[in-house]
């Protein structure tokens, strides 16, 4: 917004100096009002244009934001994609659990089977082996379900990244909420890291070396380079 120019004030000051009297008439007030209005007319005109320009920019920004928020398709994510991904994950847990129970049940049954009659024992083992093969088909289904979940995650990542770029978002420091903070603090305090990627996970042989440094396989292997 432009600052007021001194010349706008000079005409008012000059008029007041020329009227070197303590008696102020209505004519004086009207004349002063006219001079003031004329003097500041240009200032207000330039100010109007600046404000209009700024309001126009704000309006454009809001229009862009509405468009970007629309592109985020938050309602679609919240009501369809995320619940669907959650259901897929639940089904993956259920299917792997069912398959594991079937496989372990077969293994337990085979171990407990009476092997005195070899012919019937073989038939029994064959029957259980078929069940094992069938149970292993879960891997194909869970693989497809995982792909659907990954696709949803990719969609969310793409939309959020686009929105963040559009509004020049900067990451907030700290945690999103109190529950997240508590989870993070518990994990830190109790060293709950979960499974590591294979490249980062400590090997059992390295663990063994920490418990039995002298007699570990690592120590023995070191003797035979």
């Amino acid at each position: 917004m432009p600052a007021a120019d001194n010349k706008h004030f000079h005409r008012v000051v000059d008029y007041l100096r020329a009227r070197d009297t303590t008696d102020v008439t209505l004519t004086d007030v009207v004349a002063l009002a006219e001079i003031t209005a004329e003097s500041f007319s240009a200032f207000f005109q330039s100010m109007d244009a600046t404000i209009y320009k700024e309001l126009r920019e704000i309006a454009n920004y809001i229009t862009t934001m509405k468009s970007e928020i629309g592109a985020l398709q938050a309602n679609d994510l919240r009501s369809k994609r995320i619940p669907a991904a959650g259901r897929e994950l639940d089904l993956i847990v259920q299917q792997t659990e069912d398959a594991t129970n079937t496989i372990m049940g077969c293994a337990e049954a085979i171990m407990a089977a009476d092997a005195k009659d070899l012919a019937s024992y073989k038939a029994y083992v064959d029957d259980k082996a078929m069940l094992l093969f069938e149970a292993c088909s879960f891997q194909d289904l869970t693989g497809q379900r995982v792909r659907k979940v990954v696709e949803t995650l990719n969609q969310i990542e793409m939309r959020v990244a686009r929105f963040a770029a559009a509004i020049n978002a900067e990451d907030m420091k700290g945690f999103a909420d109190e529950a997240e903070r508590k989870r993070a603090e518990r994990a830190e305090k109790l060293m709950l890291h979960g499974p590591q990627e294979s490249s980062q996970a400590i090997k059992q042989t390295s663990v063994d070396a920490m418990f039995h440094p002298e007699g570990s396989q690592d120590a023995i292997d070191a003797l035979f380079p």
């Binding site: 709950l192 979960g194 390295s206």
Partner: peptide, 11 residues
């Protein structure tokens, strides 16, 4: 455990 960081083993 699946906790396979060295710091876990040491702790």
């Amino acid at each position: 455990t699946a906790e396979s960081k060295t710091e876990n083993v040491i702790a």
